[in-house]
Design a binder for these strands. Sequence first.
DNA 1: ATTGGCACTCGGTCGCTTCGAGTGCCAATA
DNA 2: TATTGGCACTCGAAGCGACCGAGTGCCAAT
Lengths: 377, 377
Amino acid sequence: MDDRKRQILKAIVDDYVETAEPVGSKTLVERHSLQFSSATIRHEMAELEEMGYLEKPHTSAGRMPSDKGYRAYVDNMLSLPEISPHEALDIQRFLLENLDEARELIVRAAEYLAGKTNYLSVALSPQYSDSSLEQIKILMIEPGRAIVVLVLSAGVVHDRLIRIPAMLDENQLDQIARAVERCLAGKKLDDITLVTISSAADDTGLPEALVNQVLYEAYVAIKQTEKIEIYMDGKYHLLKHPEFRDVDRANRFYQAVHQENMVAGYMMEMKQELEEKKAEYCGFEFDCLETLPAPPEAKASYMVRIGQEIALDGMEDMSFVSTTYRIGRYISGQIGVIGPKRMQYGNIISQISFVNKALTEAADEHYGRTHADERKE
Amino acid sequence: MDDRKRQILKAIVDDYVETAEPVGSKTLVERHSLQFSSATIRHEMAELEEMGYLEKPHTSAGRMPSDKGYRAYVDNMLSLPEISPHEALDIQRFLLENLDEARELIVRAAEYLAGKTNYLSVALSPQYSDSSLEQIKILMIEPGRAIVVLVLSAGVVHDRLIRIPAMLDENQLDQIARAVERCLAGKKLDDITLVTISSAADDTGLPEALVNQVLYEAYVAIKQTEKIEIYMDGKYHLLKHPEFRDVDRANRFYQAVHQENMVAGYMMEMKQELEEKKAEYCGFEFDCLETLPAPPEAKASYMVRIGQEIALDGMEDMSFVSTTYRIGRYISGQIGVIGPKRMQYGNIISQISFVNKALTEAADEHYGRTHADERKE
DNA sequence: ATTGGCACTCGGTCGCTTCGAGTGCCAATA
DNA sequence: TATTGGCACTCGAAGCGACCGAGTGCCAAT
C-alpha cells in the first residue's frame, strides 16, 4: 500500500467516524483538503475496495471502512492525542476522592471511562492468585458466627462471614487462626488447597471435628478472594449512537453483553495474549504530565479487537479496546471499552491508557507505605 | 361506572396488555366472548372515553387505556394469580443457594424479579438506621491500618478499612474499641453522632490526639452502614418490548433510570407513603403454599404508580410497582419493578409480593438463631 | 499518471392510491 | 328504552412511481 492510499484510507476512516455516512470521493476532497482530484481518489478507492479495506453498502453509494480497513488504520495511521493536564487532574481526583476501599478504585475507573468515552466500559477486578497470604484473623461475632479477615501481600484486605461450631470459644478460634496463619503465611493464594490448609489442624491440639469446619470456611474465604468480578458502566450510552438506531441490533448487543461470564472470559484471554507479547500494539507512553512522573514499567500496552475479530456472539459489529492494569508486582487486572467499530480509536486508546496509568498510581498511593515496602525488595 | 362498563374496560386492558395494539369494538367481542354486540360496545367505549378511561391515538383507530383507565383496572378489576408451589421452591432455592452474605439476598431478589417479569427490577438495600449497634471491634492489619467490624442487632455485620495513627499498638486499639462499645452499645444507629462517640475518648486514658482519629473513622464506618444502596437488574429486558421500538424513547428512559439517586429517593418516598397507610392497596395475602407458613405480620402491601403518577422525569409512560420488605423488626427496605404501563399488573404484583415474602423468610432463615432471639422479647 | 467530463445507479423522499380496521350515527327491533 | 345491524366516513399503513442527488465507473484529453 503506497503513501497516497494510506492518506486516503485515513481520511475516509476519519470522515466516516465523524459522520457515520458512507463517504464519496468529492466530499472527501472538499473536507480533507487532499491534493488530488476526485477522479484520482475514485481510482484509489476502487483499488482500496478491491484490496479489502473498503466496502460499499450498494453500487452507487460512498465507501466505508471494512474491518480490515479499521485494522490498517489502527495499526498504521493512528494518532494518539495527549491527555490535557486538566483532564489528568480530573481523573486523579475522581479516582481518589473519598476513597475507602481499594476495591472501589476499579469501579470508579470504569465509571470514569464510560463517562469520558460515551461507550461501554468493562473492567475486571484485580486477580490475586499470584499474591500471597500474609495474615488471617478470625473474629467471633456471636456463638456460631465469625468473620474471617484475610490480609494479602500489598496490603489488600478481604473478609467473609462464616458459620462455626457453636461451642467454639474465642480463644479456641484464635488458636485455630494462628495455626492456619503459621501454616499458610507467605504462600501464594493459588497454591493453597484444601490439603494444605487441613495440615493446620494437627497444630491446634483441638478435636478435629471442631476445627475442620472452620478450616473449610477459611478455605472458601481464601478461594473467594481469587474470584474475578466484572464491572460494566455506560451501557446506557450506546443507544445514543446512530449504529443503534436499529432496536433489534441494540437488543442483540445487550443480550450479548449481559452474558458477563462470557465477556469476562474473553477479557482474560485478551490479557493472556497481551502478556505473551503477542499483543499487536505495545509501548504507548505518556509524557504530557509532570505531576504524575511515570515509573519506567508503567508503559501502557493495549489491544484492539475490531468487528469479526471479537470472538463473542453478538459483538460482530463492535470494537473492543482493552488493556492490562497493574497494582504492585503481583496484582493485575483488565480494563477496556466496547463501542461501535466506528469509534475514535486514537482518542479512546489515549483515554484508556491514561486511566490505566492513573489507576496504577492511585492504587500505589492508596496502599502507600505497604506497597513501597514491597518495592524495596 | 356500571358493571358492564367495568367488564368492557377490563377486557380492553387485558387485550391491550397482550397485543399492544389499540383495540376495536369488533375484535374485542370476538376475543373476549362478550355477550353484547359490537355496536353496544362502541357506545360504551365512547362513554368510557368521555369519562377519561380510554384514549384514541387518532379518530379512526381503536381505543387504548389512559392512565386513569389503568388506575381503575388496578384498583377494581385486578386478579392476582397464585404462585405455583413449583415457583415457590424455585425462588427459595434461588435466594438461599450458596449464600454467604445476607447483603447478597436483596441483589438476588432483584435478579430473580427481573428474570421472572422481563422488566426492570429495582431494590433498595435494607435501612439500618433503626437497628442498634451491638458490638464494635477494631482489628489492626499493620501499623497505620485497621479494620472496623460492626455488629448490629439482628446479627448484621458491616466492616470498613480505616487508617489509624501509626504509633497505636494492638492493645491500645483494643482499648479504644472497648470504650466505644461501652459508650454506644445498644444505641440506635440513627442516634449516634460525632458528639456521642467522642465521649468515649475520656474513657480510654490515652492521649486524645491518638484516639480522635480512630473515633472519627469508626463514626464514618457507622454512618456508612446506614447508607442505602440501590440495585437494578433487567435493564436489558426492556428493549424487547414494543413500546421501546422507538430508540429515542428508550434512550430517554435509560437516561432517567441512570439517575440512581433520583430513583432511590423516589422509592423512599413511596415507602414512606406505604408506611403512613396512605397506600392505595394493602392486605394482599398468600396462602397458596404450605411449605412457607406465613407469620401473621407478613402480609405484603404494595403500591402501584402509573404513568404520569410517577414523579420522575422520563418515566411518564412507565409503571412502577413497589413494595416494602421487612427483615426482623427494625429493618426494612424497598423492592419493585418498573415496566411499560402496558404491563400484566396482576402477574407482576403477585410476583413482587411473593418475592417480598420469600425474601423476608430467607433472611430469617439466614440470621437463624440471632433473629429468633430478637423475637422473644 | 492525473484529470475533467459524462452517462449511469440506486437509495431516499414525496405524493398518490388503495386497503382495511376502526369509528359515529341512525333507523329498526325486542 | 336499550340493543343491534347497517352504512358512510376516517385515517394510518402499505404499496407504487417519479424525481432528486450524491455517488460511481469509464474514457478521452492533458
